[in-house]
Amino acid sequence: MDTSKMIRDSISGRCIAVRGNDIDTDRIIPARFMKVVSFAGLGEYAFYDERYTGNGDKKKHPFNDEAFSSASILLVNKNFGCGSSREHAPQALYRAGIKAIVGESFAEIFEGNCSVMGIPVLTVSSDDIENLMSEVENNPEVKMKIDINVKQLFLNEKAYNFNIPDSSRLSLLNGTWDSTAALLNARNKIISKSKELPYLHAFE
């Protein structure tokens, strides 16, 4: 795998804010749209029940707003992605054009799923997210620039500090976020570990 092509040290783009704490994975993608054997095409179902009424009429939602249709950076509040382990949630966002997520805090499995997909998940303070969201809502055309290396993002010429787990930061900078290759490098160590674990040999 050519890791140089997978380096994601900076991301730029327009933003879209989805407000609210504890937005769970069932809201990000309702389970009925998960009856698929491929992730392709999940993008249109992102936030589906928040965007459409039972009759299929559009509701007011940032993902239905033309002004934000080209956005690639999602802004959220606290505990985003709580609930299920379904990777369908970040996959749906990714396939709806989202390349990075900035928020106050994230559920752990969701964050892990984003990391192995190479989607930066960045946390900022409550004041900063409020500021960022307002700026973006007032001016959807404004562009954000995220610098993973220095852990700063820039909007309207103002710099904001963000946090990202060191491991995620490194794998984005090195292009090694797709973990399979790195794990498989330790093949011999994996095999010897399997020999050490007593339950793998029926305690013989």
Binding site: R86, I109, G112, V116, S179, T180, L183, I190
Partner: peptide, 19 residues
């Protein structure tokens, strides 16, 4: 619980990257 990319990792390596 793990996501699908991690299921891929477990199938291929019986291991997972985790903090």
């Amino acid at each position: 619980g793990v996501g699908t990319s991690q299921i891929r990792d477990i199938l291929a390596t019986q291991t997972i990257a985790m903090s």
